[in-house]
Each structure stands twice: as C-alpha cells, then as structure tokens.
C-alpha cells in the first residue's frame, strides 16, 4: 500500500482531493483495485460506500484491470456526425467486444472519451496516448496491426 500512502501524502491527506487521489490510483495501476477503496476510506475517514460511489461514477475509472492497449474513441458530437459512430462499430466488430470491455486475451480495451476539442480533425481515436485524426473505418485494421 506504499503507492497509496504516497498518493495520500501528495494531497496532504485532505479529503477534498479524494477524486484526484482516485485518479492517481487509476493512473498508477491502470484501474482502481478494490482494496484501494477500503484503504482510502479508512485513511481519509470517508464512508466506504461514498468512495465506492465515486469510483464507479466516472467512465474514466475502472474497477477492472484494463488491457495492454487502451483504445479511446472521442465521443464528441462533431466526431460522431463526421463518422465516429461507424468507427466505433468497426472497432467493436474487429475486436469482438463492446465499448467498455476488453478482449479476452487482454490485448485491447475499448472506451469512449469526452470530446477532446480537436473537432477540426475528427473522427479521432487515441491509443496509448497516440492521437489518430480523421480516422475512417477502413483505416482501423491498419492502425490495430501497427499497435500489435
């Protein structure tokens, strides 16, 4: 639980940074381990069901480990009308999973992200921090192959 202690210390043990602490847990571990919810609850004196509620409230947080590569599709409206929906469908078909899930081999997770503000180059997907703009459904296979 050393990583949790250093996260708690980073915010001087202040409970009003609980959401930021959970974000750091998510970054550090790639998901929010169940025991971290109980740990934060105890150390910050916040009821467990409140921490649980926050940890499940945001699409950014996940209680399950994510796959090796996380594919985020911008869910903004401009991307959507410019073909983002077809991009999501193509990804779901190719990976055989729905948004929010990971492939059984834990290679890819598929997620939607909030509007990135890069509307000028939508539809957009982001894989492991790398941004791909003006993506067409036909580009996806090539992009996935490149990743692994």
């Amino acid at each position: 639980m050393d990583y949790l202690e250093s996260i708690i210390e980073k915010y001087s043990r202040r409970r009003n940074f609980l959401i930021e602490m959970l974000m750091d847990v998510q970054h550090e571990k790639g998901y929010i381990p169940r025991e971290s919810i109980f740990y934060l609850s105890k150390r910050l004196s916040v009821p467990v069901n409140e921490v649980m509620r926050i940890a499940t409230f945001y699409k950014t947080f996940s209680l399950k480990p994510k796959a090796e590569h996380v594919i985020k599709v911008c869910s903004g409206v401009s991307c959507y009308i410019r073909g983002g929906r077809e991009v999501v469908e193509k990804l779901e078909n190719l990976l055989g999973i729905k948004v929010g899930d990971s492939t059984p081999d834990m290679k890819f997770s598929l997620e939607l992200s909030s509007c990135s503000g890069r509307c000028a180059s939508g539809p957009e997907i982001e894989i492991d921090g790398e941004v791909y703009g003006n993506v067409k459904p036909d580009d996806i296979e090539g992009i996935l192959k490149k990743i692994g």
Binding site: R14, F17, L22, I54, T60
Partner: peptide, 25 residues
C-alpha cells in the same frame, strides 16, 4: 486546482462545488 475526471454533470454549478469538496458530483 481541482479536476473533473470526465462526466458532464459535474459542470453543473452545485455538482462542481461538491466535487471540489471531494464528494460525488
């Protein structure tokens, strides 16, 4: 500085303020 972790409703003023308190927005 406080951060939104990605949900539209936390831009609503009272929800935003609860989030600054570290509570559910």
């Amino acid at each position: 500085i406080h951060l939104d972790i990605g949900i539209f409703v936390s831009g609503e003023s009272s929800a935003l303020m609860r989030s600054i308190e570290g509570k559910i927005p």
